[in-house]
Computed example of a mutant assay.
Amino acid sequence: MLIAFRGDLDTATCPSARAAIEDALEVEVTRTLVLDFSRVHVFATAAAHLVNDVSTASERCGTDLRVVAGESRCIRRPLSMFGGGKTAMHDSRAAALRA
Results as ranks from 00 to 15, higher is better:
L97N: 15
A12I: 09
R98E: 01
I75R: 00
S38L: 09
A24G: 07
E26W: 07
G7N: 11
S92C: 07
T11A: 12
S58Q: 04
A95V: 15
S55T: 02
R76W: 10
D23P: 04
A88D: 07
V42R: 02
D10E: 05
S72P: 11
E59D: 13
D23Y: 04
T32Q: 01
A47H: 02
A17Y: 00
M1A: 14
L33M: 10
V51E: 00
F43L: 10
G84W: 12
A48Q: 05
G85T: 00
A44L: 02
A4T: 05
S16N: 13
V27L: 13
N52W: 00
S38E: 04
A48E: 10
D36P: 02
A12P: 00
T63S: 08
K86D: 14
A96R: 03
L50C: 12
D91H: 13
A57M: 08
C61A: 09
R31T: 14
R6T: 10
E28C: 00
T63F: 04
V42G: 06
E22C: 13
F43S: 08
H49S: 14
R60K: 13
P78W: 08
K86C: 14
R93K: 15
A24H: 03
L9Q: 03
R76M: 11
R39D: 07
C61P: 01
V27F: 00
D53S: 06
D53R: 04
G85S: 07
R6N: 06
M81N: 11
T56E: 08
A46T: 04
L50Q: 05
D10V: 09
A24V: 13
V42Y: 07
F82V: 15
V67P: 00
R76T: 08
L25S: 09
F5V: 14
D36Y: 01
A20T: 09
D8S: 09
V54M: 02
E22H: 08
E71R: 15
K86P: 05
H49W: 07
A4V: 04
C14K: 00
P15A: 10
R66P: 11
D8Q: 11
M81P: 09
T45S: 03
C61S: 10
V51N: 02
H49N: 06
L9A: 02
A24I: 15
A95M: 08
A17W: 01
G62S: 01
A46D: 06
R77A: 14
T32P: 07
G83Y: 11
L50R: 11
V68W: 04
V34F: 04
V68F: 05
S92I: 08
V54F: 02
P78E: 05
A12M: 03
A88C: 06
R98V: 15
S55W: 15
C14I: 06
A96E: 01
L65F: 05
L33K: 06
S55E: 01
P78F: 15
G70C: 11
D91W: 01
